[in-house]
Amino acid sequence: MLIIKNASKIFSKGTVNEHTALRELNLLVEEGEFVTIVGSNGAGKSTLFNAVCGTFLLDAGSICLDDRNITFMAEHKRARHIGRLYQDTMKGTAPNLTIEENLALAYSRSKRGPFRIAVSKKERQLYRDALAAYEMGLEDRLETKVGLLSGGQRQIVALLMATLVPPKLLLLDEHTAALDPAAAEKVMKITKDIVRHNHLTTLMITHNLKSALTTGNRTIMMDGGSIIFDISEEERKNMTIEDLMHMYSQKRHVELDNDRMLFS
């Protein structure tokens, strides 16, 4: 369960570049909930993820994950409980390490002595089985450097790294946006399977409004650093993309930049 209370963040405070990235944002995500987040560029979606991950500290407010206050916890310490995927497929993996080494690094969240050989035989089998389940042909390429894989394959490795040890919270930051349609669909399907199978609490940012309404069980829309809509599963059922955009423009009294919102 993730509870964010009155989270505020202002960048470059007191200068001409002052920018309110988060404005007294409140969010409660129940355990096992899969929330999709939409909003135009600069709405504060990625900033919200950065705040949860600890890339920067909040100016005000608090963040609790499973009854633990993580507001001021060091980035690498809270990472133990949070899995994150980025749009940039290079960000989630170490390109000069092999697939199995990348997975071993992520698996280290759950283990053991520093001077043991990094990839044991037993683990190799574990990784092979896990990769084989996704039918990407990666299970036979455990010793290939991740930098040599395609974007979609890399994202699968990153996804597996984020979920090998099921995290308390999974953050997906437009993780299929840089992939071709077929790869995007495949990665999204695998994502849904993993989330369902592990019953993961998940937040997913997307610019694809259709997938936002059909994925998971709740949709929130952000604008100007706060949440302007929170749509439950029931309300969402009969909603169309037009309804969503209509709600947005009514609330903001501005015409939505259709092209940009639809571009996905």
Partner: peptide, 17 residues
């Protein structure tokens, strides 16, 4: 391996706690 990964992708190593 952690040291090697640090030179390769620091952010990712941090994300691996």
């Amino acid at each position: 391996m952690c040291i090697r990964a640090t030179g390769d992708n620091e952010q990712m190593v941090r994300s691996s706690s």
